[in-house]
Amino acid sequence: MSFPITRLRRLRQSKLMRDMVRETEVNRDDLIMPYFVCPGSGVKNPIASMPGNFQWSIDLLVDEVKDLIQSAGIHKILLFGIPEEKDETGDVACEHDAIVCRAIRAIKKEVSDVLIVADVCNCEYTTHGHCGTIIDGDVDNDLTLVTLAGQAMALAAAGADVIAPSDMMDGRVAAIRKALDDGGFIKTPIMAYSAKYASSFYGPFRDAAESAPQFGDRSTYQMDSGNSDEALREVEQDIAEGADLVMVKPALSYLDIIQRVKSTFNIPVVAYNVSGEFSMVKAAGANGWIDEKRMITEILTSIKRAGADVIITYHAKEFGVNI
Rank of each mutant, 00 (worst) to 15 (best):
R12F: 11
Q13N: 11
D19V: 08
E23N: 11
D30K: 02
M33Q: 10
P34T: 05
G40T: 04
V43K: 09
A48F: 07
G52S: 06
G52V: 00
Q55M: 00
Q55D: 03
D63C: 09
E64H: 00
E64A: 13
L79T: 10
E95N: 13
H96F: 12
K108V: 04
S112M: 08
V114L: 01
V120I: 02
C121G: 10
N122S: 14
C123Q: 03
E124F: 06
Y125D: 03
T133Q: 10
I135Y: 09
D138T: 13
N141A: 11
L143C: 04
L148T: 02
A154C: 07
A154Y: 08
S166W: 08
M169K: 12
G171N: 14
G171I: 08
G171W: 13
V173S: 12
A174Y: 10
I176C: 03
D181K: 09
D182N: 09
K187M: 10
K187Q: 13
A192P: 05
Y193W: 13
S194L: 08
F205Q: 01
R206N: 05
E210N: 03
A212W: 13
P213S: 03
Y221L: 10
D224Y: 07
D229H: 15
E230Y: 15
R233W: 02
E234F: 14
E234C: 14
I239A: 05
D244E: 14
V246E: 04
P250R: 09
A251K: 02
L252M: 15
V261T: 05
T264P: 06
N266C: 11
Y272G: 05
Y272L: 00
N273E: 07
G276M: 02
G276S: 05
G276C: 00
M280G: 02
A284C: 11
D291T: 07
K293N: 15
R294E: 14
E298N: 11
L300F: 03
T301Q: 11
S302T: 14
V310N: 02
T313P: 04
T313Q: 09
E318N: 12
G320V: 04
V321T: 06
